[in-house]
Computed example of a mutant assay.
Amino acid sequence: MLSFDFGGKNSCDDFEILIARRPDLPSPKRRVNTINIPGRDSNLRFDEKTYEDITLTVECSVKDTQNLADKIDEIKSWLFTAGESDLIFSFQPDKKYIAQVVNAIDFKQVYKYFSEFPVIFNCRPFKYAVENDLMNIISSGTVIINPGTVESEPVMNIYGSGDIVLKVNDEQISFKDVTEKIIVNSAIQDCYDDAGNNLNGKMTGEFPKLKPGENIMEWSGDVVKAELLPNLRWL
Rank of each mutant, 00 (worst) to 15 (best):
N136R: 14
N136P: 09
I137K: 05
I137E: 02
I137H: 05
S139H: 12
S139L: 11
S140P: 08
S140A: 11
G141F: 06
G141C: 07
G141T: 07
T142Q: 08
T142D: 03
T142R: 05
T142N: 04
V143R: 15
V143H: 13
V143D: 13
V143N: 14
V143P: 05
V143A: 12
I144P: 02
I144L: 08
I145T: 13
I145N: 15
I145A: 10
I145F: 13
I145V: 11
N146A: 08
N146D: 08
N146M: 10
P147V: 08
P147W: 07
P147G: 09
P147T: 09
G148R: 01
T149Y: 13
T149W: 13
V150S: 00
V150I: 12
V150D: 00
V150Q: 01
E151C: 08
S152Y: 00
S152F: 01
E153W: 11
E153S: 14
P154I: 04
P154Q: 07
V155T: 14
V155F: 01
M156V: 08
M156T: 03
N157G: 06
N157I: 05
N157M: 09
N157C: 06
I158W: 03
Y159S: 02
Y159V: 05
G160R: 02
G160L: 06
G160K: 02
S161Q: 10
G162T: 08
G162M: 10
D163Q: 13
I164Q: 01
I164M: 04
I164N: 00
I164Y: 00
V165G: 01
L166A: 02
L166H: 04
L166N: 00
K167P: 01
K167H: 07
V168T: 09
V168A: 07
N169L: 06
D170T: 12
E171M: 11
E171H: 10
Q172W: 04
Q172T: 14
S174P: 07
S174V: 03
S174T: 12
K176V: 12
K176S: 15
K176L: 14
K176M: 13
K176E: 10
D177A: 15
D177N: 15
V178P: 03
V178F: 02
V178E: 01
V178W: 00
V178T: 05
E180C: 10
K181W: 08
I183H: 00
I183A: 06
I183S: 02
I183R: 01
V184H: 04
V184C: 09
N185W: 05
N185L: 06
N185P: 07
N185S: 11
S186R: 02
S186C: 09
S186Q: 03
A187M: 13
A187Y: 15
A187R: 15
A187N: 15
I188M: 13
I188Q: 15
I188L: 14
I188F: 15
Q189G: 11
D190Y: 15
D190E: 14
D190I: 09
D190Q: 14
D190L: 11
C191Y: 03
C191E: 02
Y192P: 02
D193L: 07
D194V: 04
D194R: 04
D194A: 07
D194Y: 05
A195I: 07
A195K: 13
G196Y: 05
G196N: 06
G196V: 06
G196C: 05
N197F: 05
N197Q: 10
L199S: 03
N200Y: 12
G201Y: 02
G201C: 03
